[in-house]
Amino acid sequence: MSSKPKIGIYGLTGCAGDQLVILNCEDELLDIVGATDIRSFPMAMSGGDENCPLDIVFIDGTVVQPKDEEMLKRLRERANLLIAVGTCAVWGGVPAMENKFSREEVKKRVYGPTGDLFKTITPQPLSSFVKVDLSISGCPIEKEQLLQAVASLLHGDLPRLPNYAVCTECKMAEYPCLLIEKGHLCLGPITVAGCKARCPSYGRPCIGCRGPVEEANISSEVRLLKEKGFTPSDIQNRLRTFAGAADSLQMESLKEGTNA
């Protein structure tokens, strides 16, 4: 009989990259295993318990297939806390990039006739179906944020994740601004921090893989990108890549100065 929190780690449709980040915590894995009771982690171990109640469930991936929705709802019933892990789980991610098109059309273009062999629904983040207690975004997630989240959850608390833009971390690290100096299509001002501005550190613009920061001022970002000569479709494509399902990133419904 163990008093350690019972944990499950699951993946829906996606590349499973966030589960891989968990497995890549090589130096900390023993501490995690020591502090928790991992009951099921299908990607890493067989013979998991698929029925027991869970204290915490970590889920990566997007709801794309009907079976994802069923599994998600079942996990929600089993778990006290449900944690969305990765941009797919939090925002819909790459699978939700082309939600403007019908599923049938997308399936046909991607899979041809074999697309008829499986069912898909409009790709959506976990929060479209169930209550999510904590979101850890990133494509993939940052190992440090995951470990902080686990440590905080073990203490019965929620972690304090950045709620500010990538620009803040970019300037803290003193990287030259790629919007100003290079005129790149950088989403740093509207993307949530936590990556320590990894792409700008290599001279590459932020492509928004962590999803939008809360209250992102998209209309101002779009305006400044247009002034640099980017077309609405350049901008739209970049905005849609990782968080196409996010309401705040819909260019068609942009309101001037939201929450100004």
Partner: peptide, 11 residues
Amino acid sequence: ETCLSCGTCSM
């Protein structure tokens, strides 16, 4: 309306 709240000016 113009401000991105990006934090750059403070940093």
